[in-house]
Each structure stands twice: as structure tokens, then as C-alpha cells.
Design a binder for these strands. Structure first.
Lengths: 303, 303
DNA sequence: AAGATCATTTTGTCTAGGACAAACGAGCAA
DNA sequence: TTGCTCGTTTGTCCTAGACAAAATGATCTT
């Protein structure tokens, strides 16, 4: 075969742009403009797929497709996030030292060195500080690097996989909670990032809560069933920054309806940071507020 | 609000049936027959979604939608897999003892007890036998229970999450490989089951290979980049039984083209068991053959 | 009776083009 | 500066038709 190419279904999977969107862009903007096979179906050359992937990344940073598609490829490549964040030098000073070292290890593809460095920091600082002062800012910095295009997809995957391991390992080493409260942890079907959930689990378990980790991507009806079967007091969901913000309120309200009223619904993660309050849902923009909410719950439960 | 209901996009996410399929079934079979909102859009009542989920499960077992949809709900509920497998009693004797105990713990939602029992078996048998004689048959049995509808979605999630933890923990405890060979482990974008991959990683790492775990759902172009960046000798993919079998050959051939010829491509997992051979791709239907392949590779490399 | 070949049905995925609401941004007023 | 309105942009939904690949069933052969 000469040049590999993909049909519209494969492009949807590879880029995350729905078939509807791909066809609509072709209609409106004239890009992508795939070839057709003998059957009249779209066949996307690999370079158009690469460009689509780049455009998708820039859209996730706040750019709009109409503008992006008009731009020549060279201009696209240099484009950064829409709202440039404060220059790194400024926040550098407040960063926990050593984060850059960890990122450097990932970027040099030194998997063993990275895991080793993480475990060293864990041993030195203890789990709570490790999570709050190492993992959280590290995840944040990786997110920034991702937005800037400073990191490859496979580098981000490696980072996630290795970090997950260290966190899960630490959680497994903790004593079991006492069932006060019982907390179910998961994410909705569109959300497959689990690092935030693991951070919460680590802190909650450290604080004596009993955590039931269900992994990611649970259908809502199943979350409701699991909550009953496990007799949990709290259902905690995590939303990453990648989760479409506009869909969060509707999703939370739907789940709130499905859950028994006696079960609390907590939502945290970067995707929640700027959300508006909802009745019956406690929103936890950061880890510290998660711990605070746990304290509040206990205070209220003992009344 | 009275009865929760979902739009077509939400049903697609929740059931895994594409919008196209949902509309086509409505046209052809008259089910599902959603209501319409003020804007003429489909609004699916929750009970139709439940029925769709049940139908999807039976389809994954080899039934055909046309028949299933015609059946009344009671008949559906009792329906088993199309090709009934040999009765359990027969294979019971060859099963490793204790698997049923583990499954019982999951079904009673005893997370702590399950993890404890796993770790006990690991300590007693050692990692290699633990993977081959406990985790592999256990995963297989869970798959069967899933097909039979004997297990809830959230129970399966809990099983997966807890088992992953134990496996990853064991892998982390192993000494680092010596880079002979270097193996990259991942799955394609449509495949999110990672247990098979972790089993392979455990055995390979135990045998001294250096494993680079990239987690699941890597786009092909990224697999190729990662293979170069990490200078790997072998790329290993895992396909679960849930992966659409007909799409495997095409996917493997595409990836084979993207990889440098010097890098070996290995594919394993339940989805590979009945696949036809492909040039340039080594197929590993089970764990034992994976280990054998590793031995062969070393023998050939030392020539 | 078992096995191979061919026709028919079933099923999923693609196509085109139209419609509309929600989100966004620009311009204007306070 | 902030807050509001209005036009534009954008994603997602709609209908209805076509076709290829897979599964099934039927027919013929051994």
C-alpha cells in the first residue's frame, strides 16, 4: 500500500471529532476535503487527519474552528492557548521545587527514573503532602504542557500510567476505612481521566473514609445501583478540564434525580472549578475543599 | 421532574449503540420508539434505555437484533448466550480451586475481602502462577458471568479496578528489566480493557524484559512515535473478546505499515484466539505463547 | 447424513442537505 | 470598566435513501 488513509468512522475515533462535525466542516469551510472511494464514501488522507488533530487540540484551548481552518499550517503550528496564562517564570517561584525535574524525566522517556523519583518524594513527604504538593501541581503542569503542544500524546500516556501506579500502590498500603463515611468514587461515561479521582481517594482513605473505587466511565443508572448495593453515604465524581463544561450541570442534575436523596453527591476536579452551584450537589474545586467537605459531613452526621 | 429521560446522544454514550443504529432500528423494527420534545428531537424514556442495554448485551453474545426486538421482555430476561458453552460442572474440575470464592466476594460487594484474598493467593503461589492460574481464569469467568447477565456492570467495574491494583502493585515490586528486549505495551483506541495487558506485563517483567506501559487507547501514529522514542524491540497489543473481531486484521496491517520493519508487532488476548495469521504480526492466543515468543525472540536475537 | 456452493435476508454504516438552539463575540449603553 | 442586546458561529439533531458485508438458509454433491 502507498499512503495509508482512513474512513470517516476511523477519523472520528482518532480525532474525537464526530462524523456530523466532519461532514459539517467540509460543507461549511471546505476542510477537510477527503477523497472518495469507488462507493462515494469519504477517504481521509493521513495528512488531513494530522491537521484535524492539531485543530482539535487548539479548539480545546479556546480557539474557534472557523478561524483555525482558514489559517495556513505553519501559523497553526505556532499557535498557543487562546488566553495566554501568566508567564511561567512568575509562577515558578511558588511551584514546589522538583516538579520540573519530574517532567524532565518523562520528556526524556526515563520511566524507571520517574517512578523512582516519585517514590522518593512520597517517602520523604508522606502521602498527604505528596498528593497535594507533588501530584496535583505535576498533573496541572502536564495539562499545561499538553495545551502548549510541548508534550506528545504517548508521553502523556506514559506519565498517566506510571503516576496511577504509584498512587494506587500508596492507597493499597493504607489501612481500611471504618465505614464512616462510605464513599463511592467514579466518573461519568465521557470522562476517562482517573488521576483526580485517585488523588481524592488517597486523601479520603488517609482520613479514614471507606472508599469504593469503581474506575471510570460508569453509566448513571449503574452509579445509582452501585450506590444502593454498597450502602454508600457519598457519591464522588471527578471532571477533568477536558470534560465539556456545558454538559456538566445537566449531567449532575440527571444523576441527582437517580440517586436516593439520602446519598450526597459531590463533584470535583478541574472541570468543576468555574461551575455554577446546583441544588443537591456539593462542588469541590480543589482537594483541600474535598477534605473540608469530609470534615463537615462528619460533623453533621454526628448530630 | 417526574421520569428521567435521555436524548439520542446520551443514549449512544450509555448503551454503546450509535445514533445511526438507534434511528435505523426505530425505522425498521419500531423499537425503540422515543417520545419527541418541543423541537421534534427524540427523547428516550429510561425503561427503553434499559431494554436497549439488555438487547446490546445479548447481541454481544451472538443474537441478532431483529429477533431480540420482537421478543417480549420476559423472554429476553431469560435468554442466555447463543452458543451455550459446556456446562460449568464439567469444567469445574479443571478449574483452579478458589476462583468461585473470589467471585463470591465480588458479588457480595466485599471489596476489602476480595483484595485480601487476592494478595494471599499471590503470596502463596508466586507471581507467575498467580497470573496464570488465578487472574487469567478469574477474568475468564467474569467474562462468562457478564455474558450470562449474572453480574452487574458496577460489579464488573469494581472487579476490574481492584484486580488492576493488585497486578500493578506486583509489577512495581519487580526489579527493572535489563532492556533485553524492550517491550512497549498498549491497546488501540477502541480497546479499553487493560487486564490482559497487565498480565502480559507481569510475566514479561518477571522474565527480565523491560516493559514500557502506555495504558490503553493509543492512536496508531502515536504508537509508532513512541516505539521510536523508546527504542523498543517489540510492540505488544492486547485485544479483549469485546473488540470487534472483523476490524482486527485491518488495524494490525495498518499499524504494521506505520512501524519500522525492525520492530516486532505482537498481538494477544481473547480477541486474537481465532484470528487468521497475518504477515509481520505475531499472534499470541494465550499467556503461555507470549512467554514462548519471548524465549524465541531472545534465541533469535543472540544469533 | 455431512459438506460445499450459491442466493437471499439482515444489518450496520455511509450519503445528502435541512433546521434550529445554545454559545460566543461585537457593539453599544450605563 | 461593567452589563446588556443582537447577530454570527457552531454543534447536534432531523429525514430518507443507498449499498456492502455478514449471516442465514437452500440446494446440490459426495
Amino acid at each position: 500500500m502507498n499512503t495509508p488513509s482512513l474512513n470517516i468512522g476511523a477519523v472520528e475515533r482518532d480525532t474525537g471529532l464526530s462524523k456530523d462535525v466532519l461532514r459539517m466542516w467540509e460543507r461549511r469551510y471546505g476542510f477537510p476535503l477527503p477523497e472518495r472511494n469507488a462507493n462515494g464514501e469519504r477517504v481521509y488522507p493521513i495528512d488531513q487527519v494530522e491537521r484535524l488533530r492539531l485543530i482539535k487540540r487548539l479548539m480545546d484551548q479556546g480557539h474557534r474552528p472557523g478561524r483555525l481552518i482558514a489559517l495556513p499550517s505553519e501559523a497553526l503550528a505556532q499557535l498557543g492557548p487562546k488566553k495566554s496564562r501568566p508567564p511561567r517564570a512568575a509562577s515558578e517561584t511558588i511551584d514546589e521545587p522538583g516538579i520540573d525535574t519530574l517532567i524532565g524525566l518523562i520528556k526524556r522517556h526515563n520511566a524507571n527514573g520517574y517512578v523512582h523519583a516519585l517514590q522518593q518524594r512520597l517517602a520523604r513527604h508522606g502521602l498527604q503532602r505528596f498528593v497535594q504538593d507533588t501530584i496535583a501541581p505535576l498533573t496541572h503542569r502536564i495539562g499545561e504542557a499538553w495545551e502548549d503542544g510541548d508534550i506528545q500524546v504517548f508521553e502523556e500516556h506514559l506519565f498517566t500510567e506510571l503516576t496511577k501506579r504509584v498512587l494506587r500502590q500508596s492507597i493499597a498500603a493504607l489501612p481500611q476505612g471504618d465505614g464512616n463515611p462510605r464513599v463511592l468514587l467514579t466518573t461519568l461515561p465521557d470522562e476517562q481521566h482517573i488521576l483526580g479521582l485517585l488523588m481524592v481517594e488517597a486523601l479520603f482513605a488517609l482520613d479514614g473514609a471507606e472508599c469504593i473505587p469503581l474506575g471510570t466511565q460508569m453509566p448513571m443508572t449503574e452509579i445509582s445501583r452501585a450506590a444502593e448495593a454498597h450502602c454508600v453515604d457519598i457519591v464522588t465524581l471527578s471532571f477533568s478540564a477536558a470534560f465539556p463544561a456545558r454538559k456538566i450541570p445537566e449531567a449532575l442534575q440527571q444523576l441527582r434525580q437517580l440517586l436516593p436523596p439520602s446519598v450526597a453527591l459531590w463533584a470535583g476536579g478541574a472541570g468543576i472549578a468555574h461551575a455554577t452551584p446546583l441544588p443537591g450537589v456539593q462542588q469541590l474545586p480543589d482537594l483541600a475543599q474535598g477534605l473540608a467537605a469530609l470534615g463537615d459531613w462528619r460533623a453533621q452526621a454526628s448530630v
